[in-house]
Design a protein around this nucleic acid. Structure first.
Lengths: 216, 216
DNA sequence: CCTACCGATCGGTAGG
DNA sequence: CCTACCGATCGGTAGG
């Protein structure tokens, strides 16, 4: 824990093990796990590969640490997200907005998560179950209640809807630099895509009667 | 071009270069480009690595050939898709259905495409522009017309909507084995997810007035 | 935190 | 289509 200028030019006031985590997160997201060497990570941190292996005893250990930190971060914002979903005036916008913000504020989160899903589906399926199931159930029940009182469309498939919307948000942001580049203009495609994602999620959830009452 | 039993047990009646393409497509989709060695591909085909390099002079050449074949295949079904989009009675279902079918009939297509987008965004952005722009323009105009006659929701962002739906379909199918496993039951999650994706796309596009007239 | 080093595997070539 | 082989790089270890 020293304040020095690193070879890469950035001043550091972070523990080395945390710097390693940050660099690994970035490179794994950009180039993938198999496409990133331990030397490349060590270089960008400003240490040698054996020094890296002192902090994380293997490449797989480092990968798990990066993924675990993402999941912990996600869990730390979960209470706020769930509160947004079940109270307040514009709860739907708040809910989707919180999820969008979490991934939009660091697109590498979306890219890393998507890569892990493609690389290790069995492991991620278990992780997603652990970190998503609690509020998947809550939200699905919430949607079913909405069907009863007529605010939610009757032909919706609650679980499939929620998972599709999550996937649409994460995937849409992870691929924003490709799909967003197909827009006419060249300006601010993230906000534009995020806005349309929110609109799609809202319009496909609520009945027009409810929307007319709420949003006019 | 001989009919023999390969070491891997599958009878072959394909040109070797086509077998290589098939195996490479599968392994690139499953493990990624960096996670797949030329030896692994050659082994599964039943030849040696230098023989593979006779057909494709480098690993990158092979990657480009795999991607090119996917794009050509996509272009070959494009006319049918565009026809479905602009004629017939239930044109919307046909359009989305064709896109869903293309990727659902071989999930490795979706996985490969998504991996390429993450691995090489600049290259894929150009490819997507070439293979998507022609009908992105057509469909966007079509949606704008729908705004005029009241069949399409006025607050839609045509380009962002189309690209979001494409991403939702490709991403939803590429990650189906992970997200689909979170459903209650264990049966047929692809059809269930595909059905909900179609519903979301439809409900977020049309006005309720138009849907009431069309689907009752 | 480092230097020095390990066996294994990588993409690719020579030559037939 | 093969065997034999190349330099480079991989993840990881020994030892300080």
């Amino acid at each position: 824990m020293v304040d020095i200028f690193l070879p890469n030019g950035r001043e550091s006031h972070l523990e080395v093990s945390e710097q390693i985590l940050n660099v690994a997160n970035k490179l794994f997201a950009e180039r993938g796990y198999e496409g990133t060497s331990l030397s490349a990570i060590a270089d960008e941190v400003g240490i040698r590969k054996p020094s890296l292996l002192y902090h994380y005893s293997s490449k797989d250990t480092l990968r798990q640490a990066v993924l675990a930190r993402l999941m912990e971060h996600w869990q730390s914002v979960l209470p706020r997200i769930l509160e947004a979903a079940t109270s307040g005036d514009d709860r739907f916008e708040s809910l989707v907005g919180e999820v969008v913000n979490f991934f939009a504020e660091d697109l590498d989160r979306a890219r890393l998560l998507y890569r892990e899903i493609l690389d290790r589906p069995e492991e991620l399926r278990d992780q997603m179950r652990a970190f998503l199931s609690p509020w998947l159930t809550i939200l699905a029940d919430y949607i079913r209640n909405g069907k009863q009182d007529g605010s939610v469309r009757p032909d919706i498939d609650p679980e499939a809807y929620i998972l599709s919307v999550i996937q649409m948000i994460v995937g849409g942001l992870a691929t924003n630099n490709v799909f967003g580049a197909l827009f006419d203009g060249t300006d601010a495609p993230i906000e534009r895509q995020a806005a349309e994602l929110t609109r799609i999620a809202r319009a496909s959830l609520f009945t027009s009667e409810y929307l007319a009452k709420r949003y006019t």
